[in-house]
């Protein structure tokens, strides 16, 4: 079943067009990877999908479950089932972690017309999921992302994903800043959430993440366009030969 359809998407920041016509379809149950060199538009794509202000769509459309999200604010898109795991998770001094997680989950429940979570039950649920992801009780007590190491921040992103159970998860460079052990924990967390209920878009510069989160499809992004698509072997090709040859061949 089609989950996400990106159709001829053009987008700019300020006066500079970064995305020059992207086409991509993700079905439920599929994991797609987008690979590309620095400056290819990977992060822009993740921000455009999630509705960040300052990123203007100048052409094309983004459909989630068949509905255009272009007129939706970031929070509406999130409640519609989209989740962005940030490359650089934001520190929020003074915003308590539990307060934050509960606000996010309750926003989703309200949207679905359901009752808000019971506080005690919620704390229990969070602790259980946190434990699986190696997120300590101490981290849960702190302000959001404040004082977390790079790896802790990424684990905390995956914890949020696990709690929000999005239909579409966009993982932006989730491997950056992770050592081998952290990469394994994060990948296991992501893999546990794979399934028929959701699709995933894994954005990465390097192949190494994709040996942990094995994609069904791989797309190469360069200069704001998808220049080649294939299966997981495409990622290995990049690993071996770099991006230059693929980009030259496309031009």
């Amino acid at each position: 079943m089609t989950l996400l359809e990106i159709k001829d998407l053009h987008a700019k920041i300020g006066d500079t067009e970064i995305l020059h016509g992207i086409n991509l379809t993700i079905n439920r149950g599929e994991v797609h990877a987008i690979m590309g060199p620095n400056g290819s538009g990977k992060s822009t794509l993740s921000y455009v999908l999630s509705g960040r202000e300052g990123y203007e769509v100048t052409g094309g459309d983004i459909l989630l479950d068949g509905e255009s999200v272009l007129e939706m604010e970031a929070d509406e898109r999130a409640r519609a089932g989209m989740f962005l795991a940030f490359q650089y998770p934001v520190e929020l001094p003074g915003v308590g972690g539990m307060t934050f997680l509960r606000a996010a989950v309750n926003a989703r429940l309200r949207e679905a017309g359901k009752d808000e979570v019971d506080q005690l039950a919620f704390v229990k649920l969070v602790r259980a999921k946190a434990k699986e992801l190696g997120v300590s009780d101490d981290m849960l007590k702190r302000a959001v992302n404040v004082g977390f190491s790079g790896g802790e921040k990424k684990r905390y992103e995956i914890l949020q994903m696990a709690l929000l159970e999005p239909s579409l998860a966009v993982l932006d460079e989730t491997d950056s800043g992770l050592d081998v052990d952290a990469l394994r924990i994060v990948s296991e967390g992501v893999n546990a959430l794979r399934g028929d209920a959701r699709g995933m878009l894994v954005i990465t510069h390097y192949q190494r993440l994709l040996s942990h989160i094995v994609p069904d499809f791989v797309h190469i992004l360069a200069h704001g366009k998808i220049i080649k698509s294939g299966d997981k072997s495409l990622a290995l090709e990049v690993e071996e030969n770099g991006y230059a040859g693929l980009i030259d061949a496309a031009e």
Partner: peptide, 10 residues
């Protein structure tokens, strides 16, 4: 943006 990206209203 971080808060909104989690579904929390503006």
């Amino acid at each position: 943006f971080y808060l909104k990206s989690r579904g929390i209203e503006a």
